[in-house]
Simulated assay, not measured.
Amino acid sequence: MEMKKRISLELRNRNPAEVAELVVDNCRSSDGEVEGLTDEYVELEILSMVNAGLSSLSKLPSLPKLRKLEVSDNTISGGLDSLAEKCPNLTHLNLGGNKIKELSTIEPLQNLKNLKSLDLYSCEITALDDYRGSVFELLPQLTYLDGFDQEDVEVPDSEDDNDEDDEAGPPGEDDDDEEEDDDEEGSEGDEDEVGLSYLMKEGIQDEEDDGDYVEEEEEDEEEDEDGDEDSAAVQGEKRKRDADDEGDDDDDE
């Protein structure tokens, strides 16, 4: 599909000034130039024209808010001079898979003061001696070249950050979980309190039962003592009667 027609389809009845991201990968430019893109795209921040048959960026319109430009797998060999003027806020530029051979070809990128990430993978320039050191020296504003910084530390994956934000969930979910935990803890506390009360009640009952048992033993002991006293009294009475009977017998004799 021709680039101009593809861009028209991607608008989806929107006004060009409303478009912030435009992806027209795998379409075809009829003359190797950017087609169908105009200065009306004043809000455009991300533009992707991968494998679109581009050999030049000279007809790229003024895109003051453009931050990310993807033009990998084309046949661009130069003509990067106008990027600083047309896309002054560019921070990410992917030129991988193009026909860039010399450091002088990317020298105009020095004027892109906000450029932080540059990709040149699969370009002939990567075969130069001390390729990475030379590019970082030429473009001191760069942080990442082909996905790695000067210490060979890989660029952080921003998509992972977005996934963590999504996993955090909408506001309020954590609060609900905390409230549920509090409710569960409260229920456990009530159960513990009930169990403690029950044990205390059981202990009090046992003490009362022990007290009743002691009282019963004391009553039994008192009854036994009373019984012993009654027996002793009966026996004493009996001995007295026997003594009296013996005295009567002596008197009769």
Rank of each mutant, 00 (worst) to 15 (best):
Q205A: 14
S77Y: 01
D160W: 04
E35C: 04
D176S: 07
E21D: 08
A232C: 02
A243F: 11
D152M: 08
L95K: 14
H92R: 06
N111Q: 13
G169T: 03
L47A: 12
N15M: 07
L109R: 05
E173A: 05
E237L: 09
D251Q: 00
L138M: 10
S134A: 12
V214C: 10
D157I: 00
E229A: 05
E217S: 13
R239G: 00
I106M: 03
G96Y: 07
S82T: 09
S62I: 08
D182K: 13
D242W: 14
L80E: 05
E70C: 07
L69E: 11
V194T: 10
E217H: 11
L138F: 06
D245W: 15
G53W: 08
E124L: 13
T105F: 03
G169H: 08
E180S: 11
G96S: 14
T38G: 11
C27Y: 02
P140A: 13
D39P: 00
N26K: 05
E208N: 07
S82L: 07
D183L: 14
D119T: 01
G79I: 00
N89F: 07
K59H: 10
D249K: 15
V23I: 15
D175A: 13
E18T: 02
V214I: 12
P140F: 13
D212V: 05
S197D: 10
M49I: 02
L63E: 02
G32N: 09
D81T: 04
E217R: 15
E217A: 15
L118I: 04
D161T: 00
V71W: 14
L37G: 03
E124I: 00
E2F: 11
P64L: 08
D73W: 15
A17Q: 13
E218A: 13
P64W: 02
N26E: 13
A84F: 01
E225Y: 04
E179K: 13
E191H: 10
Y121H: 12
E33W: 01
S82R: 05
P64A: 06
G195F: 01
D206F: 10
V50E: 04
K68C: 14
G169Y: 02
D242N: 14
D165T: 02
A127T: 14
N15A: 11
K68L: 12
P108C: 02
A233C: 05
L95M: 10
K68P: 02
E159R: 15
L115E: 03
S30M: 12
S122H: 13
D166H: 12
E10I: 00
S30P: 04
L103G: 01
R12E: 04
M200Q: 14
D166A: 10
E215R: 14
S30E: 14
S29N: 01
D252Q: 11
L44W: 00
K201Y: 13
D210P: 02
L93H: 09
E215Q: 11
D183T: 02
S197V: 06
K5S: 15
M3G: 04
K99S: 08
R67C: 09
N114F: 07
D39E: 08
N74F: 06
D165Y: 05
E102G: 04
D206P: 01
K65C: 04
D176V: 03
D163P: 02
T91P: 03
K240R: 13
